[in-house]
Design a protein around this nucleic acid. Structure first.
Length: 648
RNA sequence: GCCAACAUAGCUCAGUCGGUAGAGCAGCUGAUUCGUAAUCAGCAGGUCAGGAGUUCGAAUCUCCUUGUUGGCUCCA
């Protein structure tokens, strides 16, 4: 038979040869590195015999498929170990994921000591070098097999597979699991494995189902890579905005105010003020009209928008339950979004096709009653301020306006230096979950197709996600990962073909007909609190100079130079530079160290020698000692840096 | 909301078997007047998250509440 390799070369092998044997024939090293194979583009076991002509790619740890096979086998080893230590534990599912794997068990919660014991057992299984063996069963036999083992979750999974499906199982020693594979040849290949944590997880991801115990772990081919990964996790924790932001006195929280309601301290408030001014000024340049709308409204407003029906649980509604249930009562609720308020601005008078597009923006504070377990630092909060905006446009303007929104979003992303950290998600509805969305299927499909076309026209490198749309329309979400690898939306642009009609928003078209505008909902920098969090993590607290709450720290060496230092401080403030003077009687090294820890961009060391020569000694947090220069020169350089909004 | 862990001074953390609450850093006061990542001394600082219970006695054991963390679910 002929086997074609990725480089195009074709070699002959005997029927029934395995990918591992082929690898061996090329080099023993490749044999060792081969974890799985890709046969005509489909992943499969490297230890499975091959018959007939095929294209073959050998998968090593360098390939996603190779990592996936290794880590998936690691999850089987985990399950085997858990059942050896806790025989009563029932198996749910255990896939490989990005950077590792997990396995869900129906069992008593695991304590950290259990994890240690399980990890020891895993090491035993690895040392046993149990070969993995694949076999298939017809559906009814597979069900009987797992019933006999007392594995109800596996039975449920098989029952849900389409009739007549081939059920594949993998056996390693005394352990067998339902699995599509592929796997590595034996458990020894999983040698560098580490269990990371335990967590609760709902069976099949549904909160109505039983909560299972999930164990997360990771596995690497090389010990050094595993160690590096663990070190990287530790390193990431040091950048955590929730820790760093508090240490740098950007924000804090107090029990008595409540969950998800952070206090922005003067330094954090300053950063957000700078961002807001920057965003509002930029939006004004781009033809936006600023509104200031109320923080609350009668529930009737949210009934029109659909929020009352769809998100009442997520809103802070005033009054007691009895009043809220009275349809006649006047009930107010804090706003969870700005859309209907800005729609009222549009409805202020009649609009002509000539008025469109109309672009409204608002630095808008919103209130959402997030579930108690959702709150996290500045990333998920119950009150936040967002660079909100709504555009009303004619159908022929949608693409250009969408482009304008995307351009603004990208401008913000580039300014903050996030361009390499974001991904673009085209968030669509889920037609199988109709009660989550309003409107007709045809309209959804056509709007989504239109949006996809626009995204393609604009050359956006996006991926599609079902069931992530807003209830009224599809979105482009610009996603960002925090230090824990958890993804959040930074910026969103949405096309809404429904709410204009609900609110009776119209314009008189050139033909004299009244028509509903298409509405684009968008943010330009997203939520300020979240953006601050991501800035802290991205720059490990060393915010770009233009955003630094304190830009220059002036450090007199002795109190002979204190007076002059204060004069310099005043001089800098005259130029709008945010400076502070450290007048304490501490050694200069100590003062520098402290300013460095506060991530202050520049330090001016003021001693007698420099004063005599009419210069200042400059240090930067980034490059250390920059030598001496005149104050005038320093101000000039610093001002240029601030104006450029550069980031490291 | 669900599963789990955690909560001791502003911060980082000790606190044994249930027996009067401890350190370092920060703060304050004084001394030092200093040259590039920690000068010296002293002082002050805690209803051990809050509440209830067990006990002669609770930071320590039990329960409840609040908050924090890691997940799950959710995220207009």
């Amino acid at each position: 038979m002929n086997i074609k390799f990725p480089d195009g070369s074709v070699h002959q092998y005997a029927d029934g040869v395995t990918a591992l044997e082929i690898a061996e024939s090329i080099s023993p090293r490749l044999r060792k590195a081969t974890l799985a194979a890709e046969l005509d583009g489909a992943r499969r076991d490297a230890f499975a015999p091959i018959n007939g002509d095929h294209t073959l790619k050998l998968l090593t740890f360098e390939d996603e498929g190779g990592r996936w096979a290794l880590r998936h086998t690691a999850s089987h080893v985990l399950a085997q170990a858990v059942q050896r230590v806790h025989p009563e534990a029932k198996l749910a599912i255990g896939p490989a994921i990005e950077n590792g794997f997990y396995y869900d068990f129906d069992a008593e919660p695991f304590a950290p000591e259990d994890l240690t014991a399980i990890e020891k057992e895993m090491e035993k299984i690895i040392a046993e070098a149990l070969p993995l063996e694949r076999f298939e069963l017809p559906q009814n036999e597979a069900i009987a097999f797992f019933q006999k083992l007392g594995e109800p979750y596996k039975v449920e999974l098989i029952n849900d597979l389409p009739e007549g499906a081939v059920i594949s199982l993998y056996r390693q020693g005394d352990f067998t699991d339902l699995c599509a594979g592929p796997h590595v040849e034996n458990t020894r290949k999983v040698k560098n494995v580490k269990l990371l944590n335990v967590a609760g997880a709902y069976w099949r991801g549904n909160e109505k189902n039983k909560m299972l115990q999930r164990i997360y772990g990771t596995a690497f081919e090389k010990k050094a890579d595993l160690d590096a990964y663990i070190a990287q996790l530790e390193e990431a924790k040091k950048r955590d905005h929730n820790k760093l932001g508090r240490e740098l006195e950007l924000f804090t929280t107090v029990d008595i105010i409540g969950q998800g309601l952070p206090i922005l301290l003067p330094k954090g408030a300053r950063v957000i003020q700078l961002l807001q001014r920057f965003v509002e000024d930029e939006e004004q340049k781009r033809g936006y009209m600023l509104t200031k709308t109320p923080f609350m409204a009668k529930r009737d407003l949210y009934k029109i928008s659909g929020h009352w029906d769809h998100y009442r649980d997520g809103m802070f509604v005033m009054g007691d339950k009895q009043d809220q249930d009275d349809p006649e009562a006047e009930i107010f609720a804090l706003r969870p979004m700005t859309c209907p308020f800005q729609f009222m601005a549009y409805l202020n008078r009649s609009r002509s096709y000539r008025d469109l597009p109309m672009r409204y923006n608002e630095t808008s504070t919103l209130f959402r009653n997030e579930a108690s377990g959702e709150m996290h630092g500045l990333l998920r909060v119950r009150q936040f301020t967002i660079s909100e905006g709504h555009l009303a446009c004619r159908p022929d303007q949608v693409e250009a306006e969408f482009k304008g929104c995307l351009d603004l979003a990208k401008f913000m992303i580039n300014t903050l230096g996030f361009e390499d950290d974001v991904s673009y998600r085209f968030s669509k509805w889920d037609e199988n979950n109709k009660n989550k969305y309003i409107g007709e299927k045809e309209k959804w499909e056509s709007t989504q197709n239109e949006m996809r076309e626009i995204l393609n026209d604009l050359g956006v490198d996006f991926y599609e996600a079902d069931g992530e749309a807003a209830f009224y329309g599809p979105k482009l979400d610009i996603q960002f990962k925090n230090v824990h690898g958890k993804e959040d939306t930074l910026i969103t642009i949405q096309i809404d073909f429904q709410l204009a009609e609900r609110f009776g928003m119209v314009y008189t078209d050139s033909d004299g007909e009244k028509k509903h505008p298409v509405v684009i909902h968008r943010t330009s920098i997203g939520c300020y609190e979240r953006t601050l969090a991501l800035l802290i993590e991205k720059y490990a607290g060393a915010l770009p100079t233009w955003l630094a709450p304190v830009q220059v720290k002036i450090l007199p060496i002795t109190d002979r130079t204190s007076e002059e230092s204060e004069r310099i401080n005043g001089e800098l403030e005259k130029y709008g530079i945010r400076a502070e003077c450290d007048l304490r009687n501490e050694k200069i090294g100590f003062k520098i160290r402290e300013a460095q820890m506060q991530k202050i961009p520049y330090m001016l060391v003021i001693g007698d020698k420099e004063l005599e020569n009419g210069v200042v000694a400059v240090r930067s947090r980034k490059n250390g000692d920059l030598g001496t220069m005149t104050l005038e020169q320093f101000v000039k350089d610093l001002t240029a840096e601030i104006m450029s909004k550069s980031h490291d």
